[in-house]
Structures are given as C-alpha cells and as structure tokens.
Amino acid sequence: MLNQKIKVRDLKLWYGKFEALHGVDLDIYENEITAFIGPSGCGKSTLIKTLNRMNDLVENCRIEGTVELDGKDIYSKKVELNDLRKRVGMVFQQPNPFPKSIYDNIAFGPRTHGIKKKSDLDEIVERSLRQAAIWDEVKDYLDRNALSISGGQQQRICIARALAVEPDVLLMDEPTSALDPISTAKIEELVMELKKDYTIVMVTHNMQQASRISDRTAFFLNGDIIEQDLTRQLFTKPKEEQTENYISGRFG
C-alpha cells in the first residue's frame, strides 16, 4: 500500500566550507504530498534541490550520503542526469515561464525528449494544461506570450510545463509564495488533485498551507530534520519541543 518513492539517508551538503545539511534522513511516499516547513535558511530548499540534482548547478556544492529514487541512487555515475530530471520535475518559487508562447512553453519538455509530431504535441499540451487546471483560461490564446498572463496563471503554466514530460515526482519550492491568496488557493486545490497521479514534495513557508494540504510534514531547523511525521500527527501532537515551539509560533 504505502510505496516508498524517495529515500534520503545521512545526507550532508556543503556550500564551500559551509555545511548546510548535517546528515538528513527522509522518506517520501508515493501519491502523497510531503511538506517541508521551517524558518528561512534551515535547509529545506537545499534538500529539495538535491532530489533532482539542481544543486549540481551550484558552484562548490558537495554532498555526502545517499538519495534513492525507487531504490536507485540518483547520484550514481550510471544515472543520466537529464533522465532523472525528466522523472523528477520541479516548480520554482517565482513563476519562470520562457518568454515564448504558452504552447511552446508546454511543448519544450516533450520536444527535449524527442517528441516531434505535431498531433502528439497538441495532445500533450492540452492534457498538461487540463491537469494544471488552466486549459479553459488559455485554450484560445495558446500562441500568446506566456509572460503576458497573470502571475498565478504563469505559475500554473509552469506546473503544466513540468507535467508535460510525465514525471513521477513533482518538486515544488514555495510555489505560492509570490502569489496572491486567490491564486494560492487555486494552486493548493490543484496540488491536492495532482497527488492522485504524482508524488509531490513541497517546500512552504506557510504552516497553514502545510497543514491544509500535505499528508506528511518534515520540520527543518538549522540544517537538520527535527521531526517528520504524518501532518495530522506533527501539528497536533509534536514529539519534539522545538517543533511545538515553531508550529505554535514562538519563533520562525
């Protein structure tokens, strides 16, 4: 029943000499939403970036420990980086559509992975936009520049773009922090819908958001995971004092 998707063991990460993660263990299960909470600079964004190796782009970034996806180490030399990123998609804090048409934004990923036929692309574009609950809003403007629509819509375009390559896992790094409350609500609703088909990992600054939508929550502090549990459990009966202090708003 509960299928483990990602397994992180004793993960340490350095930016140059600074140790940002001090041996983190984490389990992420299939078709669940796992939320990372914690104050700024606690390592939650750092950890999410290791799950699709976006940290490879950061100079002087070094890791130790293992990250397994479906039981296979993603840092092994055998892993083809672009295949990994196809399987583990990512949505960023700031909506970052390409300055291209909406259609070309969505089609970029599939084209990257070799899909050329127009009819196939049309189908993927429509399916992805429907999945991201934005098809009805943009279906008549697919050739419009993706930067010309609102921020909330842009973020859903980015989600659709990530879905278009049919990933298993969707990483979301504070996807609503730059958006207004209405757009945020739409995206939360969407994320809850998406977990039927995807495994979702989401960093959030907003504890209410974590408690509203996630199944599991991991609480980060100063580069450690202090506690991880079912969200219901963690928010009502935290085991650690620091967790309780944080969720009751005593710091952070």
């Binding site: 990123r85 998609g89 970052n96 559509p97 970029f108 990923g109 990530a162 390559v165």
Partner: peptide
C-alpha cells in the same frame, strides 16, 4: 538564472 533552471529542470541539456 530562472529560465535556465526551468530548462534544466525539464531535463534539457546545456546546449539545448
């Protein structure tokens, strides 16, 4: 950086 990250995150290589 953002559009580069978006592209890499979709599995596109450096040249693409």
């Amino acid at each position: 950086m953002p559009i580069r990250q978006a592209s890499y995150a979709l599995g596109a290589g450096k040249l693409r």
